[in-house]
Design a protein around this nucleic acid. Structure first.
Lengths: 227, 227
DNA sequence: CCCTTACGGTTACCGGGATCACAGAAAGGA
DNA sequence: TCCTTTCTGTGATCCCGGTAACCGTAAGGG
């Protein structure tokens, strides 16, 4: 969806020299310090990328869906993983081993350009996250995260956005870089103000415009309120 | 230095279809919202990448030197800048316009692979910064930043590392995501403990091993203490 | 050479958010 | 069905680091 037609072209290229792997919900795709040299391209399903620090705290780097690339870091030098990847649902991915990519770059240079595009988009998002951590407070970050999730993993329904993810407050906390307790409090505040509606594992945005306000979203057209 | 021989090969490729621009110390290379579609590869000099938020606070994304790539985000879709770049010294860069890159990808696919490598390296660093913001306190982040600066912009001298940058506490604060006051305090603490020596605009690491300790550096061999 | 400007140093205060410590409620397996 | 586990809700407390308000000092331009 986000990649427009590119995703399809890319997949045709990938089909020439890559194979497909499927993962079940909850399955771990890779772990830190593992040594392999493949990147993955999501054909179908959702994948969570995260990093654990030594004390057990977790930072979720991204929740990705169809048409996204991950594990690209393994295309670098020695190819050791720094983070973990886990399938949030049953998923199928193209596997892109480094050496195959290098050999095939000569015959289909467009492929590498496409990958470069995908990597740049991810980099942009991470840079955005870094900026948010420095400049924004927890409430703002949470509002933004909810809007992002709705955009990438949600659908519109009668003026509200349903987030199509089974997600806990703990997981949200790991996504915004805060604690579960504070996330719970802020979510309740949002609900009391009529910005969102929530049940266990489920959140819907009932007032996207106002929530975007709280997110101090730079330009509305980037948000989810349009259409 | 960090790129080994790759940098040279890459530059030969770039010479085929890119031109060179030079900037004076302090000159701004680009600004947000500017619309151009070129990336830059540093041939010589140092460049600071930063982002200003609306309140005027600044986050320094990176201080780069010879062999580094920046402004790659312009290779994406519409090509608008999100951050600023400024020459810290007189510098010369290869300019890589997007359309030239795309046309030349067919004739020299290795070039794109090299760029991909460089982008991945940058992405790795930013991801690292993000993790630090979430997991580490200010003192740790500052210790790490000093070691990084020494590694990338410093030289060894009689067992200590001199950082070859004219840098203020304010700039360090923008690099670690803290305030000038706290950076000053921590630097003084480090100096009192004999970890660093400093004068105006100048910092040297006198005890790299111990400072790496304070940085809770994962593996020593990544630090600057070896050799 | 003076005088403005920027940088470095230091304190007091305050607040966002982490930590700790519960309790109720839903889920889900035996 | 019960009983354990996981998730949510809500306080009390604490502390890191931001904010504000100074002052002395080096730098550097007119």
């Amino acid at each position: 969806m986000e990649n427009g037609g590119n995703s399809k072209i890319l997949q045709e290229e990938l089909a020439k020299f890559c194979h497909v792997v499927t993962y079940r919900e909850g399955e771990v795709i890779y772990n830190p310090c593992q040594r392999d040299t493949a990147a993955y391209f999501i054909r179908q399903g959702r994948v969570k990328l995260y990093h654990l620090d030594e004390s057990g705290k977790r930072l979720t780097l991204a929740i990705l869906g169809e048409g996204n690339l991950f594990g690209e870091m393994a295309l670098l030098g020695d190819g050791h993983r720094e983070s973990s990847a886990e399938a949030l649902e049953d998923s199928t991915c193209w596997v892109i081993p480094r050496d195959k990519l290098i050999t095939c770059a000569k015959t289909s240079p467009d492929l590498v350009l496409h990958l470069l595009q995908l990597v740049l988009r991810r980099m942009n998002e991470i840079q955005e996250r870094l900026k948010e951590m420095v400049f924004r407070d927890l409430e703002t970050r949470l509002a933004r995260t909810l809007l992002n999730l709705a955009q990438r993993h949600g659908h519109r329904q009668r003026g509200r956005w349903e987030i199509d993810l089974k997600i806990t407050h703990q997981e949200l906390a790991e996504l915004v870089g805060g604690t579960r307790e504070n996330v719970t409090m802020i979510l309740n505040r949002f609900e009391a103000e009529g910005l969102i509606a929530k049940q266990r594992f489920q959140i819907a945005i009932t007032d996207p415009e106002e929530l975007a306000e709280r997110a101090s979203w730079a330009s509305l057209d980037e948000g989810v309120s349009e259409n």
